[in-house]
Amino acid sequence: MKVSDLYTCLKKVYGFLGKWWPGLPEEIIIGAVLTQNTNWKNVSRAIENLKKALGENDILRKAEALSTEKLAELIRPAGFFNLKAKRLKALLAFLKAYDFDLNRLKSVPTDALRKSLLEVKGVGKETADSILLYALDKPVFVVDSYTKRLLKRLFNIDLQGYDEIKNLFESEYPPDLALYQELHGLIVEHAKRYCVKRPKCDECPLQENCYYASQLK
């Protein structure tokens, strides 16, 4: 199996997942910061706190108007809440320059927008690309720890650099928004079900095509 076959193979196993990241674009932007070093259950609780306190409409503008201390209190379930509040405030200040208008952001060329996001303190490559792909409908591939794990185990490809892996996938697949969203979700799904830290190779539906599993025989 080649990297270019991964989407088809995973889709045969899991079917159509669609857009994997839940929520409205504004919530996705917030969640992209909050999900750093925690699980989605905790992120969901933090976002629910924000929605209860601020309402669902214009949540980015309202969150930016909060003090850092109040914001930290609301996002406490996400962990590292003081640090994340500072990072979220920095991102919200960036969005304020666009009057929190996501359509204005979408009109910015992808490379230029990615560069600007990466200049925001606390926004790394995975966070920036998650915002671009899921909130702003930009076809950029998101790399996470699950992607690295599957590359190493399925294909014996040991790339550590974020951009190396991103460029690999973007060279193997066309710049298709729906495909990138779904492929990322399929990778996460497979890594959580079978390709966990202690892999369940005997149960894995891809074991016949997996380099790691072949070395166990």
Rank of each mutant, 00 (worst) to 15 (best):
M1H: 11
K2H: 13
V3Y: 00
D5R: 03
L6E: 08
Y7T: 06
L10F: 09
K12R: 13
K12S: 14
Y14G: 11
Y14H: 02
G15S: 07
G15M: 09
G18K: 02
G18R: 09
K19A: 11
W21R: 07
G23R: 10
G23N: 07
P25A: 01
E27P: 00
G31H: 11
L34T: 14
L34P: 05
N37G: 06
N39W: 11
W40A: 09
K41C: 00
K41F: 05
V43S: 06
S44I: 11
A46Q: 10
E48I: 13
K51S: 15
G55W: 02
N57I: 13
R61L: 15
K62H: 06
A63T: 15
A65P: 07
L66I: 08
L66V: 15
S67K: 12
T68R: 14
E69S: 14
E73Q: 12
R76T: 00
R76G: 00
A78M: 06
G79I: 11
F81L: 04
N82R: 15
K84L: 10
K86C: 07
K86H: 10
R87P: 03
L88N: 09
K89E: 08
L91D: 00
L95S: 04
A97M: 12
D99I: 00
F100I: 09
F100K: 07
D101S: 05
D101T: 09
L105S: 01
K106D: 03
K106V: 03
V108K: 00
D111W: 02
L117Y: 01
K121F: 12
V123M: 02
V123Y: 06
G124P: 00
G124K: 04
S130D: 15
S130L: 09
Y134L: 12
D137Q: 09
D137I: 08
K138V: 07
K138W: 05
P139V: 08
T147M: 03
K148A: 15
R149T: 05
L150H: 08
L150E: 01
L150P: 06
L151C: 15
L151I: 12
K152P: 01
R153Q: 02
L154T: 01
F155W: 06
I157A: 00
D158I: 13
Q160G: 15
D163G: 04
D163H: 12
I165V: 15
I165D: 14
K166D: 01
N167Q: 14
P174D: 07
P174Q: 13
P174T: 08
P175S: 13
D176T: 07
L177W: 04
A178G: 08
L183F: 02
L183I: 12
H184L: 10
L186K: 04
L186R: 10
V188K: 03
V188Q: 09
V188T: 05
H190F: 04
A191F: 03
K192G: 01
Y194W: 14
C195F: 04
K197R: 14
K197Y: 01
R198K: 15
R198L: 02
K200M: 10
E203V: 01
C204E: 06
L206I: 04
E208Y: 08
N209P: 00
N209S: 08
Y211E: 03
A213H: 14
L216H: 01
L216M: 13
K217F: 13
